[in-house]
C-alpha cells in the first residue's frame, strides 16, 4: 500500500477551492465535471474510507464509488451555503457509516495495514516505516468512531476544527475535546514506538 501513497499532507494541498462552475456543470449532469471533482477528491475520500473501514480495500473502493455516485445524484441539493468540501465529507462520513453497517467482509486489521511497501528506501528503513504506518493505522482503526472521525478529518482531510464540527454536526468544543481524547489514546497505545517518530 505504501507504493500507492501519492503525497503526504505537506505535499498535497488539502483545501483546494472547488470551481463553482465545475459544481454547476456537475449539477447539470456533466460527467466531465464529475471527473474533475473525482480527480480532485478521490484519494482523500478513498483514504478516509480505507481508514474508517478497518483497512478493507475492497470496502473502501466500494464506499468511494458510492460517494461519487451520491455526489452526482445529490449535488442538486448543494446550495453553496456550505463549503463544498464540508458537504462532500459529510457524504463520505455517512457513506462509510452505511458501509460499515453492511460490511460483512472481515479483514484482520494488522495484516491489512501491514501489507504496505515503499520504494526508494533501504529495506530496513522501508520495513520500519511500514511497520510504524501499520501500527498507527491499526490504532486509529481501533478508536471509537466518535474519536476516529475527528482524527481522520483532521489528519487525512486537513480540515479545521470549525469544518470538522460542520461535517460531524457538533460543536467546535466537542471536536477539540474528542481530538484531545483521541490523541491521548493514540499516545498511550503507541507509546512503545515513540522513538521511531
Amino acid at each position: 500500500m505504501l507504493d500507492q501513497i501519492v503525497a503526504t499532507r505537506e505535499q498535497l494541498p488539502v483545501k483546494e477551492s472547488t470551481d463553482s462552475r465545475t459544481i454547476a456543470a456537475c449539477q447539470q449532469g456533466d460527467r466531465e465535471a464529475l471527473r474533475v471533482l473525482f480527480e480532485e477528491y478521490k484519494d482523500r475520500v478513498y483514504s478516509i474510507a480505507l481508514y474508517s473501514l478497518s483497512g478493507d480495500e475492497m470496502a473502501a473502493g466500494d464506499a468511494t464509488q458510492q460517494v461519487f455516485l451520491k455526489l452526482m445524484t445529490r449535488i442538486g441539493q448543494f446550495r453553496g451555503d456550505a463549503e463544498f468540501a464540508t458537504w462532500l465529507y459529510r457524504l463520505v462520513v455517512n457513506t462509510c457509516h452505511d458501509e460499515h453497517r453492511k460490511q460483512r467482509r472481515f479483514v484482520a486489521l494488522a495484516d491489512s495495514f501491514l501489507q504496505t511497501s515503499a520504494g526508494g528506501e533501504s529495506p530496513r528503513a522501508s520495513y520500519a516505516r511500514k511497520e510504524l504506518a501499520g501500527r498507527v493505522q491499526t490504532a486509529v482503526a481501533e478508536l471509537k468512531p466518535k474519536l476516529r472521525w475527528p482524527i481522520l478529518l483532521k489528519y487525512v482531510e486537513g480540515l479545521s476544527y470549525e469544518e470538522i464540527a460542520q461535517v460531524l454536526n457538533c460543536s467546535k468544543g466537542t471536536v477539540a475535546s474528542r481530538l484531545n481524547r483521541a490523541h491521548k489514546a493514540l499516545g498511550r497505545r503507541l507509546s512503545h514506538l515513540k522513538n521511531e517518530i
Partner: peptide, 28 residues
C-alpha cells in the same frame, strides 16, 4: 501526551484510490 498522539496521527498518509473506482462510477 497530546503532542505524542498527534505525532503518531501525522503518520496517517493519503492513499491513492484504485483506477477501478472511476470505472465503477461510470458503469453505475
Amino acid at each position: 501526551d497530546v503532542k505524542l498522539g498527534a505525532k503518531f496521527a501525522e503518520q496517517l498518509q493519503i492513499v491513492s484510490a484504485p483506477d477501478s473506482v472511476w470505472a465503477g462510477v461510470v458503469d453505475q
